[in-house]
Write a protein that binds this DNA or RNA. Structure first.
Lengths: 198, 198
DNA sequence: GTCTATAATCAGATAGAC
DNA sequence: GTCTATCTGATTATAGAC
């Protein structure tokens, strides 16, 4: 899948345990200190390995970032689809969206994408996949409640994700004006649309 | 205003022309290549000056970033208030919010804030000020249209800004699924609320 | 106010031994 | 698969001359 234009270097296979440890360490650094802290030296240090191993498993740091994102994205998408399968209600979709677990790292990756083309492409691809999955779920949920005529599902989806993403971002900054009021409002709206749910 | 705990270094005054040129160069770099490109060397190079001058006018690079943000924030806030004074309609508030001019740089600063505490504090302060100004404006606009009972103004505000910020961010990535449909929906909603406007 | 010179780090990346 | 050794270049920051 990766480009093989420079046949000189040796690159380690994807099933190595050290490779996984490096990815884990990189992810942890990214969460705790931001992407700028993800250097070959620091990643290796956290994993208890030598910096050069990073370059053995990942030709460039960009390759590491892309791999990191892909790994996390796959997990996220799977988790989302399993959760929807178990409970496809509007309220659950909202809950999944408001889950801050992924938000912090997402911001970091988006910022990275701003100046790393390889990562931008990867994120864009994933965003489209995730949007499609979310759209299918919210369309079904709105139709189940006879609310699909009030607002196009895709609009509801953008409103919802925009709201949750911004609140997550603001929370990270310590700005929370209006958050409580908004959460209450959404909660009431969900109760109106889906009387049967908690 | 700045801390003066280390009296050893000489720092240039705020009225210098070179200082302004450095800030301009830094801002341009930030827009074009992201904050990672804003190094003392590159900033000075773009301004046609020596890298050491950056450290003469700004004790640290963080100081430069804070100054950069503050300068832009002040301009933004003033522009917003002037625009609202001229036209306080909902539609104009939406237009101002959807204006992508500031969005790209905003993202960059937020990402920076993630790992630079001095900048995080500055952004948080500004975000609160801006929210207050926006809240006053949207409250007045909703009341003028007798729509303040449909939704708390602060909720409308968060929905609006969340939506515009996310769309701006996605546009930067090349992801635009649902954007047109949402813009159309908002446009129709505004026409319904404010029949008199374009 | 601007320069030269330089200290002190840290970065990504590679070659080749074991 | 992992190591030592190393190259090369960038970065922030300071001191002191002019």
């Amino acid at each position: 899948m990766s480009s093989s234009s420079a046949p000189t270097r040796r690159i380690g296979g994807p099933d190595s345990q050290s490779r996984a440890m490096l990815l884990d360490a990189a992810e942890q650094l990214m969460v705790e200190e931001g992407y700028a802290a993800v250097t070959s030296r620091r990643v290796a240090g956290k994993a208890g390995l030598k910096p050069q191993l990073v370059h053995y498993y990942f030709r460039t740091m960009d390759d590491l970032f892309v791999e990191l994102f892909r790994r996390r994205a796959d997990v996220n998408l799977e988790r989302f689809e399993r959760a929807v399968e178990a409970d496809g209600s509007l309220r659950n979709l909202w809950r999944l969206n408001a889950d801050p677990r992924g938000s912090a790292v997402t911001i970091e990756f988006v910022a990275l994408a701003n100046h790393r083309k390889a990562i931008r492409a990867e994120i864009a691809r994933y965003a489209e996949r995730f949007r499609a999955a979310q759209l299918a779920a919210i369309t079904a949920a709105l139709e189940a409640n006879g609310a699909a005529d009030q607002m196009p599902p895709v609009v509801a989806l953008l409103l919802m994700t925009g709201l949750t993403q911004m609140m997550a971002l603001e929370r990270a900054l310590g700005v929370t004006t209006g958050h409580d009021a908004t959460m209450t409002y959404i909660d009431d709206a969900l109760t109106r649309l889906e009387p049967g749910r908690s």
